[in-house]
């Protein structure tokens, strides 16, 4: 404001960008931005270069082959099973985690008495602090034996849905178990982000519904959820990103096989990250290139998912409430 400057002492008058503090800070932030771009470009170039080296030697179709044997002669490897396993286990995780996370977030932000909300939010944060290998060990040792019973039950009563039809015997080291484990792992991030969004719903929107005679649930339906919609999508995508790339927990729980089965309860399957973790140490130079090629596909899938999320959020921008 021009009218206020004369009151300031001479030394504190703004003089454009000439002051050293401004220049240093703008240089630092610009440098950080450029560093990010350089890192992304370096990763993309590295992945693409090594992947091209591998795929050009592949004797079969990289996308449709159900086998991983880059050391063979001729080399045979494809990502069909990995893509299927990654996507399916992540979908299972999302289907389980998103509704529960929204429920927890709503409970913390709108239902729980303050005395309970704080500790509960803390417990959710704790869940995020557990290392993934611990989840993997817990899953393999504790969850898998317990899930045998659940799997039998699902097979008996929901077997007609095909996906819950258990066609072969074996312990529950399957994509469904992986999905449950991933759901637990992505629960905290989705819960925390949605909770923050729900807490930011302007009071006047909630009061608008209340004053019309809305019950608490109706306030949530009319004001909170519509306002939080884009936040819920962003949070889910963050969770999905983690589920797609999760490595150790999947590697410990799954008994990998290079088969695609629509029966989620059948043991076997694999994911990109799990396959890379399992094979990287024993692979030769070319084998590693092949694994990197699969990593590039995972990278592309993640990008695609993020792009889709942005598109969904942007599509109804005029209704988003950001302008209000």
């Amino acid at each position: 404001m021009a009218t206020t400057t004369p009151d300031l002492p001479r030394s504190r008058r703004p003089k454009g960008a000439a002051r050293p503090g401004d220049r240093i800070f703008s240089g630092l932030s610009r440098g950080s931005g450029i560093t990010l771009l350089v890192i992304m470009a370096a990763i993309a170039v590295f992945l693409t270069y090594r992947a091209v080296l591998a795929i050009s030697q592949d004797s079969t179709n990289f996308f449709t082959t159900f086998e991983w044997n880059p050391a063979g002669n001729p080399p045979v490897f494809g990502i069909a099973v990995l893509a299927f396993g990654t996507v399916v286990s992540s979908i299972v995780a999302m289907v389980i985690a998103v509704p529960i996370a929204i429920g927890i977030a709503l409970f913390i932000s709108h239902y729980a008495p303050r005395k309970l909300a704080k500790p509960l939010a803390y417990v959710v944060d704790l869940l995020a602090a557990v290392p993934s290998i611990i989840y993997g060990l817990w899953g393999a040792i504790f969850l898998v034996p317990y899930l045998d019973g659940l799997n039998q039950w699902l097979d008996t009563y929901l077997g007609w849905t095909y996906i819950f039809d258990k066609s072969s015997d074996g312990v529950a080291r399957n994509l469904f178990t992986v999905g449950i484990l991933l759901a637990i792992m992505i629960l905290p991030i989705i819960t925390n982000v949605t909770r923050e969004v729900f807490l930011q719903v302007p009071k006047m929107h909630e009061e608008a519904a209340l004053a019309l005679g809305a019950t608490r649930w109706e306030v949530i339906r009319m004001s909170v959820l519509p306002f939080g919609r884009s936040g819920i999508i962003s949070a889910s995508m963050l969770g999905l990103g983690r589920a797609l790339g999760e490595t150790m927990a999947v590697a410990v729980v799954l008994s990998p096989s290079f088969l695609i089965s629509g029966h989620l309860l059948d043991p076997g399957g694999g994911t990109f990250a799990q396959n890379i973790a399992a094979k990287f140490n024993e692979a030769d130079e070319f084998g590693r290139d092949a694994l990197i090629a699969s990593g590039l596909v995972l990278f592309a899938i993640t990008l695609l998912v993020n792009g889709a999320a942005r598109w969904i959020i942007g599509r109804r921008k005029e209704y988003s409430g950001a302008a209000a």
Binding site: P202, M204, H205, E207, A208, A209, L210, A211, L212, G213, A214, T215, M222, S223, P226, F227, R229, R316, Y319, S320, G321, A323, A324
Partner: peptide, 21 residues
């Protein structure tokens, strides 16, 4: 109280139409 608010309407200081509707 929900029934009360259905018989006693209210208009607020800042216009607050539901932004998503």
């Amino acid at each position: 109280p929900v029934a009360v608010r259905r018989t006693v309407g209210m208009v607020f200081q800042r216009p607050n139409p539901f932004p998503t509707m």
